[in-house]
Every structure is written in structure tokens, then in C-alpha cells.
Design a protein around this nucleic acid. Structure first.
Length: 496
RNA sequence: GGUCUCUUGGCCGAGUGGCUAGGCGCCGGUCUGCAAAACCGCUCACUCCAGUUCGAAUCUGGAAGAGACCUCCA
């Protein structure tokens, strides 16, 4: 596929302007993208799959267009404070205490699980995956910068960003569309915030309470960095003070991303990202699936089927396809019925792909395959509209099946182009894995061998020794050794 | 309470001022030893009320319902 990025017509919805904008990188052909990753204190659930897969598409498509993408997705392994707990303990530390483990063991365990689940769903690894705990020094320096500029203050060993002062010359609310007066008058009064000058101020550094086990030295206190600062700091370090795309879940828009902008404006002198992209939530019974609501289903539950909410196990590719059948900025409601529909649709799609190899070409054609390809590009160029893309792919499915039934004709060139469309859009960009190449292949193979051995056992029962020996010899030539015993037949690979 | 968003056929979900996305399901048919797959056909939806318009599900206003954020959350 030849692509010239100067001809790219990609438009994306920028949360900052609340409209679709043409994508023009700051330093083409290089593109820098930062996405907020998980806080590793629990197993990844369906909600975590949404941004991972949504931005996987963004990165894959940008690369397909010819851009050189540096994709940074962080791991938050410094737990944020739990505000509902009376202790002000952080999430990871709390989990560590409950399980009698070192906090870093918790973070390691769950980040390993996260990686395992993302790999199963064929999510590309980021170029850089920085950890908050590995950038404490940078975060301290970042906080110092803000402190020195006069937009932060120290209070009892903690450092807070002075939002009210910031808002006098800047707009705190530029991203989320709020104005600070509303926020001030309507913010809930929380416990333990006496240190702040204003309720809207947020921590850059928090002094650790005596029982707080995750702590680092700083000029102000032994403590830990505030929530928002890690992203500002690490995006600056790896992508520069001004980069192309910042992504994350919609629930992070305020206050997290809003605060990131404020921090960067003061520390770096400018807003960090040109484009802000936010994926919407996955809902269950119309309500957001979330950790705090306790209504989440983990990815491992989906893969194993072990959950009261699930009728059966679902392949990781089914989950991926399910997510891609909705636009990333829409909510997506989970149900077994919806998931089953995705599973069947995906199966139909993959069967059509397999069929392409055996299509008989004609000298004439009834279909405009190149037009179909153009439609696929148009769909992605329009803010990564994967559901539209998939609708077009199903057009291709119908064409393949009809050609197979001799109801329409395709030329050799048509078939080559059709295959190219599938290879590029389904596999490269949507990132679907061919089911038949996945690890279930091993399982299918073993079941096939068992099936043949069962057939051979029937032959033996009928004293059809010729058939029985033929099957044994054929299996042997394929590398499967059959061993008969009084108990029955077993088998093993000729070469391990 | 404040800010914002959404409301599409049995389900999930796109989208546009006029030309019935797509997937799944249902029903009928072709095919078939049976089944599956496949193909064809059928299912013409857009919360309600009023307005703008030659024409609105799409624009405007109002109502109802749901959700998100405002506090950790992808």
C-alpha cells in the first residue's frame, strides 16, 4: 500500500476545540502521542480495554499512513489517594497491606497481568511505557519549577497548585468547558483538605502520613507525587513540551487532563498537546463499568467465561471486535447478546477471508473494489470511524460470498485488491488476529488427532486391520506416533 | 445542586435535511441425505410536543427519561 502522508486527509475530534480538525502533526512525519495508562492495583477489566484498543487503532492507522509514531503510555504505580478511606492511604499501598506484600509486588503483579491481557487482544506495545515510580526525581523538579514560578505553595510539607491564581491569567477549564467559579461554588467539601487555600487546588506533592509506606525524599517532606504531575512530567520528558496527541478516557478529562494543561502551561510555558482525544465509557445496564462501582467484569473473566454475568467464554478477538464495532467516542453497552453478535459477525468475516483463496476469477467484474478501498480510508479519516469501516468490510464479505456462489463475477485483480483490503484494514489496522493462527490451533490439532484415533479404534473393533494400519502409518508419516495398549490407544509427537 | 452529553428497529450500533449503514436475531425461500455455512427476500426505526422548511429522525424551542463529570476510576 503506497501512502503519501502529505495527501492524508485524516480528521480527528479534538476535545479542546470540541470539533473535528484536520490532523497536521507538529513535526511531520514524526508524531508523538501520550495516553494515560492504568493504575496497577487490580486486574484489567473491559473498561481498560477501550482506550488501549481505541488508541491502538490510532497508532496503527497513523503508522499505516506513513507517520513515524512515538507512542507513550504510562503505568501508574504510585497509587492515588483513596478519599473514601479515613486514612488517606493510597490504593497500591492499601492493597499491599491487605495482601501483606511490598507495594511494588502489587504493581508488578498487576502490570504483568495488564500486559498479558493486552497482548491477548493484540494491542501493540507502546514505544515507551514509563512508570511514575521511576520518575520521582523528574516530578520533584517539575513541582519545583511550578513552585518557583509562584503558582504553587507549600503547606505542611505538601505542595499545591494554585488554581485560583492560575485562572487569573489563564483559563482553568479550557478543556472541560468549566469555569472556576462554578467549580468553586459547587465542589463538595471533602475531609482533610484544610491545607489547601482553595478547594480547586490540587497536590503536586503530598507529605506522607506515618503509615504511608510508599514514600520518597523531597525538599519538602518524605512523601509522594500528586496524581496529575506524572503525566505532565513524563510526556514532557519523552515527547517534549509540545506534542501531537494526548489521549485517555473521558472520565480523566476533568480534573486530570485539565490539571495537566495547567501544570504544563506554568512549567513549560505552553499547553502540552495539540489534539486531545477521549474515548467514551463502556456501560453495563446503561451504567458506566468502573472499579468504584464494582460492576466491572475482568478481561480474564471474559477469556475464561468464569463470571456470573457471562453466558460463556469469549475470545480476546471477540472483545476487540466488539469494541471496534462502536465508535470510540460513543458509550458502548455490554451484554451477552451484543457480544455474541460480535462473535458471530467476526466469524463470518474470517470465513469470507478464508474463502478468498479459492475464488475462481472471471474475465469480467461486477464490483468496484477500488471504490470499496476508498470508502474504507474515508471511514478511518473521519475520526477513526471503525464501525463504518467494519460496515464496508462486511460489504466485502457479501461480495466474496456472492462470488463464491457464482452470483457475481470478480477478476483476478479484484480478488487481489479485495485480499489487500482485508490484509490492510482488518489485520494491520483493526489489528484482528486470524483465529486460525492463534493458540487455539494447537488445541484443534490435538482434537483432530484424537478424532482420527477414535475412527481407527472403530476400525480395530471391526477387525478392519488394513484401515487401522493405514491410519497408523499415515499418522506416523505426519509425525504422530500411535501406541496401542490393553487400555486403548495413546499418541505422542514423533519429535518434540 | 452545578456543568455537559445522550435518547435510533427484538439486541448492539453508524449516519445524514430529501436517496431505508452494518452486525446479530426473527420469519420466508434457494441449496442440502441431515445439519451447518452461504446466498436471496422480509422485518423500513429514529423518546414526546411544537416550530422552521417544499421536505426533519437529522435544524430550533420546550417536555420527559437516561448517563457522564464535579471525588479515585479507562
Amino acid at each position: 500500500m503506497t501512502n503519501n502522508i502529505t495527501n492524508s486527509n485524516l480528521h480527528l475530534y479534538n476535545s479542546l476545540s470540541r470539533r473535528k480538525e484536520k490532523f497536521v502533526p507538529i513535526h511531520s512525519p514524526n508524531v508523538g502521542i501520550y495516553v494515560c495508562g492504568p493504575t496497577v492495583y487490580g486486574d484489567a477489566h473491559l473498561g481498560h480495554a477501550r482506550p488501549a484498543i481505541s488508541f491502538d487503532i490510532v497508532v496503527r492507522y497513523l503508522r499505516h499512513l506513513g507517520y513515524k509514531v512515538r507512542y507513550v503510555r504510562n503505568i501508574t504505580d504510585v497509587g492515588h489517594l483513596e478519599n473514601d478511606a479515613d486514612s488517606g492511604e493510597d490504593k497500591i499501598a492499601k492493597k499491599a497491606r491487605l495482601e501483606e506484600l511490598e507495594p511494588m509486588e502489587i504493581a508488578q503483579y498487576y502490570s504483568d497481568n495488564y500486559h498479558r491481557d493486552m497482548e491477548a487482544m493484540n494491542v501493540l506495545k507502546p514505544s515507551i511505557e514509563p512508570r511514575a515510580s521511576g520518575h520521582i526525581q523528574e516530578q520533584i523538579e517539575f513541582a519545583e519549577k511550578i513552585l518557583n514560578s509562584g503558582y504553587a505553595y507549600e503547606s505542611n510539607g505538601s505542595i499545591y497548585f494554585d488554581v485560583v491564581k492560575y485562572n487569573k491569567t489563564n483559563h482553568y477549564g479550557i478543556l472541560s468547558g468549566r469555569n472556576i467559579e462554578d467549580v468553586l461554588t459547587n465542589s463538595r467539601v471533602l475531609e482533610g483538605q484544610e491545607e489547601k487555600h482553595n478547594a480547586v487546588d490540587f497536590a503536586l506533592w503530598k507529605k506522607a502520613s506515618p503509615e504511608h509506606i510508599m514514600r520518597w525524599h523531597s525538599p519538602w517532606s518524605d512523601g509522594f507525587p500528586g496524581w496529575h504531575i506524572e503525566c505532565s512530567c513524563m510526556s514532557t520528558k519523552y515527547l517534549g513540551e509540545n506534542f501531537d496527541i494526548h489521549g485517555g478516557g473521558m472520565d480523566l478529562l476533568f480534573p486530570h487532563h485539565e490539571s495537566e494543561i495547567a501544570q504544563s502551561v506554568i512549567a513549560n510555558g505552553n499547553s502540552p498537546a495539540k489534539y486531545w482525544m477521549h474515548n467514551n465509557m463502556i456501560t453495563i445496564n446503561g451504567q458506566k463499568m468502573g472499579k468504584s462501582l464494582g460492576n466491572f467484569i475482568t478481561l480474564q473473566d471474559f477469556f475464561s467465561g468464569k463470571s456470573d454475568s457471562l453466558d460463556k467464554a469469549y475470545d480476546p478477538m471477540t472483545i476487540r471486535f466488539f469494541i471496534l464495532q462502536a465508535h470510540y467516542r460513543s458509550t458502548l453497552d455490554f451484554s451477552n447478546e451484543a457480544l455474541l453478535a460480535s462473535e458471530k459477525g467476526l466469524n463470518k468475516l474470517m470465513n469470507a477471508y478464508k474463502l478468498m483463496g479459492s475464488l475462481a476469477p472471471s474475465s469480467k467484474s461486477n464490483e468496484n473494489i477500488l471504490a470499496l478501498e476508498q470508502k474504507c480510508y474515508q471511514a478511518l479519516d473521519d475520526d477513526f470511524n471503525t464501525p463504518i469501516l467494519i460496515a464496508h468490510i462486511f460489504d466485502g464479505v457479501r461480495i466474496i460470498n456472492s462470488a463464491n456462489d457464482k452470483k457475481l463475477m470478480l477478476t483476478t485483480e479484484d480478488i487481489i485488491n479485495l485480499k489487500k483490503i482485508f490484509d490492510v484494514f482488518v489485520f494491520d489496522i483493526l489489528g484482528m488476529k486470524n483465529q486460525y493462527d492463534s493458540n487455539s490451533k494447537q488445541e484443534i490439532t490435538e482434537n483432530l488427532i484424537k478424532l482420527i484415533i477414535d475412527i481407527r479404534l472403530e476400525a480395530r473393533a471391526n477387525k478392519d486391520w488394513a484401515e487401522s494400519d493405514k491410519l497408523r502409518d499415515k499418522l506416523k508419516s505426519l509425525g504422530v506416533i500411535v501406541k496401542d495398549s490393553k487400555e486403548g490407544s495413546s499418541w505422542e509427537w514423533a519429535i518434540e
